[in-house]
């Protein structure tokens, strides 16, 4: 769920922009400037992945993927997510232009935490990686939901109810996200483990430019 325009107070939107810009700049620093186009292409893939709808009872949920983005991209995840949200906001109106900074914090911070968590605890076996991946998927969504709630609450006590409902609405997403992340990491471990290595976006040594 992305916050639209007009919900957050002015100070929060501007603060969100500032914090988002600082983190994006830091994230971009962690990548060689040469390789930034790669991040752009990878972002497109995550964008498409987040459009997948997963049925849950009578309704359906779409994936947020902060956990997977963090696990696969590492620190670059923040940049990729910022870019993805900018694209969504500009082209599809998912998430308001003024709330862009806040939205990028909501998705980007969990991604970075999850990336660190996954790389630290992933271990070497397929089973463990899948479990840790699932945990970071679920945890990333919880974190995103909490940040969303906190952001909404900055609007004053009138938004408490909305915040609570938003949190509750994330419960199915958390479960789905956790399971899907676990399976996806398990799949990647068997099929292309190189993707799960830290910050693979950096070039392989043998490639010279």
């Amino acid at each position: 769920m992305h916050i639209s325009d007009g919900v957050l107070p002015l100070s929060v939107t501007i603060g969100g922009y500032a914090a988002g810009a600082v983190l994006t700049a830091w994230s971009a620093r962690r990548t060689r400037s040469q390789d930034l186009p790669k991040v752009a292409v990878v972002t497109a893939a995550f964008f498409v992945a987040s459009l997948v709808h997963i049925p849950f009872g009578p309704t359906s949920a779409h994936l947020l993927l902060p956990g997977l983005a963090g696990a696969l991209l590492g620190p670059v995840a923040f940049l990729a997510i910022g870019l993805g949200l900018l694209l969504q906001s500009l082209l599809f109106q998912f998430g308001g232009l003024t709330a862009l900074g806040a939205n990028s914090l909501m998705m980007g911070l969990p991604a970075m935490v999850c990336g660190w968590f996954f790389q630290t605890f992933k271990g070497r076996t397929s089973f463990r990686q899948a479990i840790v991946g699932g945990l970071s998927g679920a945890f990333g969504t919880i974190l995103a939901a909490v940040i969303l709630a906190v952001l909404l609450v900055t609007g004053g006590e009138d938004f408490f109810g909305v915040a609570k409902i938003a949190l509750a609405a994330h419960v199915p997403v958390i479960i789905i996200e956790g399971i899907v992340s676990a399976f996806t990491i398990g799949f990647l471990f068997r099929v292309k483990p190189a993707l799960l290595e830290p910050s693979f976006v950096k070039p392989v040594k043998s490639v010279h430019v």
């Binding site: 997948v52 997977l68 099929v191």
Partner: peptide, 9 residues
Amino acid sequence: ANFLGMLFV
């Protein structure tokens, strides 16, 4: 999940 994994690969 396989679908996503394949998409990423």
